[in-house]
């Protein structure tokens, strides 16, 4: 399904594997991203999930929203659980006890589960080279436990453990670049995505699934509750993240970078920051610092796409 972008709406299958009726907040673009990922992969898949919003909203015993096999063990070990399932299938298929049907192993975790507490397990799984797709749903904080900061929370954002105070203006560290960390592991397919660009997202998921070995997709997932925006604005904010260059959409195939959603004219970051309650306290000076950093990071990314092999 190459270039699904062009005629996607018509060829997408109607079947959902992440079923409606879950308990996510209104306008949750993380749940939307989960749904798109599940749809892109179909039903020949085994999912391992980390603890977090997406796990809690979809698996209250004895109910489930999952129409594919799904396992949750803990917060920080998803990549290891996934390694185990993948290895089990490999061994069982080799011994002829199951048929090898090319089942896809999908890991899912929030930014906390991925960039903080689960980074070691993920690094180990990347390094061992298991064949899986790991998706980080990045809503830029620990939302499930009440909007605490993570290493993926952007500079300046106010969270419940990096509150905008009289002395400290919220988060004062720069967002960890998890996609680059994956690239540094020589993961053969790495991409960023956002549910505001659904076809770009699904195409990347399918590409990741076709890639032998590990693949990593980092999905910016707008969380109206934590970002303090109206639920109706989620998709719009996701677009602004891309159009301001704050969250560029790109992919890295065997080290080769490509920007997948071009932004010919970059909007000022202020347009992205202003509508969000978590950035309400920012002064023009801080906004200018963020603008400077975004420009720098974007130039770096563009330079990487121009690297001649």
């Amino acid at each position: 399904m190459e270039a699904v972008n062009v005629y996607a709406a018509r060829i997408l299958e109607k079947q959902e594997y992440f079923k409606p009726g879950h308990r996510a907040c209104q306008g949750c673009a993380e749940a939307l991203a989960v749904r798109l990922v599940a749809k892109a992969l179909g039903n020949n898949v085994i999912v391992a999930s980390a603890t977090g919003c997406m796990e809690i909203i979809s698996s209250p015993l004895p109910f489930t929203n999952w129409d594919v096999p799904w396992i949750h063990v803990a917060f920080e070990n998803t990549a290891a659980v996934l390694s185990g399932a993948e290895s089990a299938y490999k061994a069982l298929a080799r011994k002829g006890r199951i048929k090898d049907r090319g089942t896809v192993f999908l890991g899912m975790g929030g930014d906390g589960a991925t960039t903080d507490i689960g980074l070691q397990a993920l690094s180990g799984a990347f390094e061992r080279g298991h064949s899986f797709v790991y998706v980080c749903y990045d809503n830029e904080a620990y939302m499930n436990t009440g909007i605490q900061r993570s290493s993926s929370t952007p500079f300046g954002a106010s969270t419940t453990t990096s509150p905008a105070g009289k002395k400290v203006p919220g988060q004062i560290t720069w967002k960890k670049n998890m996609a680059e960390i994956a690239v540094a592991h020589n993961v053969p397919y790495v991409a960023t995505a956002c549910a505001s660009y659904p076809f770009d997202l699904m195409e990347k998921v399918q590409k990741a699934a076709r890639t032998p070995g590990p693949a990593y997709i980092h999905i910016l997932s707008v969380c109206p509750t934590g970002w303090r925006i109206p639920p109706s604005k989620s998709i719009w904010i996701g677009r602004l993240a891309v159009e301001t260059g704050i969250f560029p959409l790109f992919e890295v195939e065997d080290g080769r970078y490509r920007i997948t959603v071009d932004v010919p004219e970059m909007r000022p970051v202020e347009e992205y920051l202003k509508p969000q309650g978590r950035f309400r306290h920012l002064t023009p000076e801080i906004t200018a610092r963020i603008q400077e950093r975004v420009d720098f990071e974007y130039r770096k990314l563009v330079a990487k796409t121009q690297f001649k092999f």
Partner: peptide
């Protein structure tokens, strides 16, 4: 021995791999 030997990066991951593997139906 025809088995997958997973040299994990920690015991936390060892037990986590075991959970995934056993849940997928393998002797672990």
């Amino acid at each position: 021995l025809d088995a997958e030997f997973i040299p994990v990066e920690s015991e936390h991951s060892a037990m986590s791999v075991c959970c995934g593997s056993s849940a997928a139906g393998a002797r672990t």
